[in-house]
Each structure stands twice: as C-alpha cells, then as structure tokens.
Design a protein around this nucleic acid. Sequence first.
DNA 1: AATCATTTAAACCAACTGGTTAAACTATAT
DNA 2: ATATAGTTTAACCAGTTGGTTTAAATGATT
Lengths: 212, 212
Amino acid sequence: MDKQKIKPNTGQLILEAARVVFIKKGLEGARMQEIADEAGINKALLHYYFRSKEKLFDHIFENALADVFEVINESIHEDGDVFVFIETFVDHYLTILKKNPFIPNFIFNEITHHPERIDLLSQKFKLNIPGFNRMMERNIAQKKIIPILPEHLMIDLLGICVFPYVASPLLENVFFKDHPAGVESFLYERKQHIINFFKKALQPKYLWQQKA
Amino acid sequence: MDKQKIKPNTGQLILEAARVVFIKKGLEGARMQEIADEAGINKALLHYYFRSKEKLFDHIFENALADVFEVINESIHEDGDVFVFIETFVDHYLTILKKNPFIPNFIFNEITHHPERIDLLSQKFKLNIPGFNRMMERNIAQKKIIPILPEHLMIDLLGICVFPYVASPLLENVFFKDHPAGVESFLYERKQHIINFFKKALQPKYLWQQKA
DNA sequence: AATCATTTAAACCAACTGGTTAAACTATAT
DNA sequence: ATATAGTTTAACCAGTTGGTTTAAATGATT
C-alpha cells in the first residue's frame, strides 16, 4: 500500500536528486555531496548505488535526451497533415518544456562541452527525420503549404518553442522586469501565437487568391 | 609600426585566450593553466594580470553580453519600418553568430548557473525595449503588419536566429549526418528564409485582399 | 648604470573533490 | 535467531585546482 511512502526506492530517489543538481549546475558544477544532500542520504550510500559521477550523469543525461526525442518523434506521422503536425508538436513540446524548463539548456550545454558523446548518443536515439521529410514533401506537392526545406521548418519550430526557456532568466529580467506577472500570461498565449504564426507563414498563395 | 606584432599586448592576449577557453568549457570547466597555455604564458603571469579566475571571467562574460546587446540595439530605430528592422536585425545578428557561434550557449549557460549576476548585468546593459515597443505599436497602427505582441516578435526572431547555433553540435549529427556539406549551404540559405518567413507571417490581410 | 615593470621557472600551499574503507546499526526476510 | 541488504558515520586518500611565493632573468626608460 503505502510502503513506498515509508521506504521510497532509494535508487529512484537518487536519480531525481541528481537530475535536479545536474540540471542546475551541469556536470562540472555539480558536487556528489550536494546530490547526496538533495536526496537526503550520505555520500557513501550514493556511491553504493552509482559507482561514479560519470555513470550517474550518463543516466540523467540520456533520459533527458530520450524524453525530448520521444516527444518530437510522437508528433511525426509520415502520412499526416502538416498543420496537424505543427499543432501537436507545439502542444506536446511546450507541455514538456513547461514541466522541465531547463532541460534544453542542460542538453545543449553538455553536448557543446563534451561533443565526444554525440556519436554514441545519435546511435542510441534517432529522430524520425526520413518520415518527417516524406510528410513535408507530400504536403508541399499537394500544395497544402508553400515550398520550404523541411530542415528549416523543424529548426524554426524548435527555436521558437525552446528559446523562451533557454533564455528564460534573461528574458524575465529584460522583458518582464516591471511586470513579473506578465511572463506567465505571455507563455500562456504563446502556444496559440506560435501556431497562428506558422499557419500564416506557410499558407499557400492560392488560398487567398481563391478567396478574393 | 609593427611593434604590436613583435610584442603583443599581453593583457589582450590573455583575454582572447580566456575567451576561447571559457566559451569552450564554461566557468567551472575552464582551468587557469589551460588559459595560460592557450595564451602562451605561464600561470604566474596570468595571475599577475588578472588577480582571480572570477575577475577574468567577468571581463569575458560582460564583453560577450555587451556585443550581443549592441547588435540588437543597433537594429532598433524607434521611428523605422518593421521590415527594415527585421532585415537588419537578421543580417547583423546572423553575421555576429557566424563569427562567434558559441556565444549564446555560453551566455545562457552561465546565466542559468549563476542567476545572481543577472540583476547587476541588467543594470549595466539595457536593451532598448521601449523604443522597440513604440516602433511596433506605430507599425501596427499603420497596418503595415498584423497585430502582434512585440515580445512575441522579438523572441521569435531571437529563437529562430540563435537556435541553429545553440544546438549546432546536435543538428549536424541529426540533420546533416549523411551530407555534412549541407550544413553550410543550409546556414547560407537560412538568412533569406528567415526574412521571407517573417514577412509572410506578418503581412497584413488587406494586402492580398486588395491584390485579387 | 640604474630603475622599473614584465616574464619565467619551480616549488609550494590550502582547499576541495571524487571516491574508498571499515565498523557499526537497522530492518526485513528466512 | 541469523543472515542479508540497506544505511550511517567518520575518517581517510590521492589527485586536482586556484592561487602564492621567491628568485632570477629580461627588457625598456631614464
């Protein structure tokens, strides 16, 4: 029943603590003692569960990357509609970002600091780029959207969704210094803004040529 | 004449070396010995010029932030046209990003790792947000573009320009793994894509209602 | 020649870090 | 009851790091 509350899985407890600390401070900035404190245990037990800092870090990092990749892949349907893709992508991606605002920064940072990992990781986790490309080709051929390189659209989407979170400490101070409450409503509105923005930018010309 | 080549300004030499190392490894990851090596001097001399790692880091970081802010502010003209703003902003910003691809990641990372600095920094460096807002209001009132929150546009622009560089190690492996040359042509095309993309997204409706 | 700032070399230091060890305690299950 | 896995405490270790020190060399200035 409530055994989990009385005696929580220590391994899981450590992973969650490590997640918090690694994401806040990065690999070099994090301290094993701090992770132990965050987990409410001591250093010896920490090493009893995870032999080294690197092993622990790998767990956290790979999980973080897998989560992001999963959300992206889930919204790709080879035979689907572009606008449906955009809506589900933005919806799901902003949802996971709201829950884990610092994950992208964490990933980008560790990957630029330790690019050696990339090759190994890109074997383990794969984005369904071929499927995405085929969806784009078909939708463009069907004149549902104007011609555009699939890479551009994907990167536009990622950039526009992710940026407010990657730069959030700066944004809050630069844009919403005088009205700190504004940042919440801003992020709330943002989903609809992004969807509208992309719809209008991708809208084929014949649509409004026909209408008039 | 050529005294500078024979005896370069050591302080400047150190700052450039520190820039390289700090941007590559971050504050915690960088080693004073590595900076000394990069500058071709020894550690004692390094501390002779800059008393501590923190002082040295502050120099680098504040300069990096100032450069970015300067580019943004230069493209803001309170009484200018939105589309001119977009074009000059994208042009200038992509140019400085091409020269210093890792600066944004560096800034975002250090600011999330050490948020205490922000207050001090935001006093020193200010974006001309009021001017930008007024430009937006006027252009919207003149129906040059559809209504849009200025914050959204600014963040859209920043995100779309910056993302390919912040995520570059990942992008190269995910999108351009099979054709590594593609990343260059992609970044080359990208400027025009971004400008077209924003023009179309912001285009007021009456423009194409009139045309037909 | 003599003063002064710059630069090197090498040893040194205190603090911190990841990681280990050993002894003892606790709870649970057999 | 006894074995077992989980957990604590606290001391310990070796390596690294930022930073200092001292003495000697190298210039440039005057």
